[in-house]
Design a protein around this nucleic acid. Sequence first.
DNA 1: ATCCTGTTGTCTGCATGCAATTGACTTTTC
DNA 2: GAAAAGTCAATTGCATGCAGACAACAGGAT
Lengths: 234, 234
Amino acid sequence: MATRGLQILSRLREAVLTGEYTGGMRMNEADLAAALGVSRTPIRNALSTLGAEGLLDYTPNSGYVVRTYTSKDIAGIYEVRATMDGLAARLAAEQGLSDAHRGIIHKIVADGDELVASAAWSDEVRERWVELNHRFHATIAEAANNDYLGGLIRKARDIPLIAQLRFRWFDGEDLLQSQQDHTEIFDALVNGQGGRAQALAYEHSYRAGRRIVTHWRKHEAKRPERGERPRNAA
Amino acid sequence: MATRGLQILSRLREAVLTGEYTGGMRMNEADLAAALGVSRTPIRNALSTLGAEGLLDYTPNSGYVVRTYTSKDIAGIYEVRATMDGLAARLAAEQGLSDAHRGIIHKIVADGDELVASAAWSDEVRERWVELNHRFHATIAEAANNDYLGGLIRKARDIPLIAQLRFRWFDGEDLLQSQQDHTEIFDALVNGQGGRAQALAYEHSYRAGRRIVTHWRKHEAKRPERGERPRNAA
DNA sequence: ATCCTGTTGTCTGCATGCAATTGACTTTTC
DNA sequence: GAAAAGTCAATTGCATGCAGACAACAGGAT
């Protein structure tokens, strides 16, 4: 069993990512300690780590606050993310997919085709697609064989609320388009077409990012209060 | 004045980056506390943060060890770094340089020309070039107007020993080549040629990375002992 | 009413003591 | 002699007390 500090860290990170602790909330050490049933020490450790990860903002002698993301932040992150996904695809193509990786991605693409062909749009379909999409990109990142890149892609993906919101506005048409993208990217990968894989993956991720930014702007417009007093978390 | 913890954090980070605490060393809390004249608490905080930044490896109930970088790690990091520098250059070009940024970069390029023309290669010239080069890239990153990207570029630059070693093998010919690169990149930036700026910046950084990896491999070959018992730091 | 100032309450920063874990070393057993 | 079991020293994990910083508030002077 991991140490208490690590468990707390996971819990708090999850809470921030899922939006349970929403942007602007103060992370009061004593309150969190009471809520989670430990002393302030492991809490402080976890907060410090989350601060270093960029999920919390820190002010000396004042404490940690859940970071808020503007639509400009999101746009910037997605510009980087798309570039990284493009890089991962190029590297994977240039090195050539291993049999194992090719098999995995082939299966994912085939399952995607089946999903598109067989089912009408529904929440269940969305769930399934989220999983296929995730594995598709994770496998390419792995095939790129660059740990540093893999870590950055993961970090750029773990942004509060994004995981929840990302596919909320997805519809059948988006699904079809995305699946076609996956098919083309896979084709480029197996044929060792690095430049094509890069361009396709970039565009694929960029478009996803643009969709999120658009909706984030609306989300943003609905809560114009920036001067509001920060409420306590936990 | 910042808190003790933050001062300790800066000091330890610097010590790791400059190689004072070299790869594989154990970061013993009590020893560090004694050496730096504080209690274990701010030490633990700093170690935790450095762990999150990736400079230290952490094992529960065992502690923190200064991370070691293989030449493959370095190559991976520089592949990403080159891609980021390319992205920054493209974004800067596409948005158009502000008058201020254009002025700053223009001056840097002019100073570089002067340096190349007037002086023979020497340690002083190297020092001056390091500074010009740093400001050149930092200014482009700033002009890209993407905080997330800027942060990643900074993190990819702050790798232990790299800052020290990066220009150790630089000679007059490398200087000339690099200055020409800067001139072309600047030209692309002021003309709004995003694609060209991206390609040039990528290649410029990629070449620097390849030089480092080559030398790192030799460095690596000289100390084949991987199974050595970790010595204590501080 | 506004500004300044002293006060007080709340929260973080830090030190320290003790518990828990680990890994090395010693002893025991076959 | 080798493997297993037990012991011990060293080190990290955690809780807690207290000091210090900061922000909000109250009261008084202008």
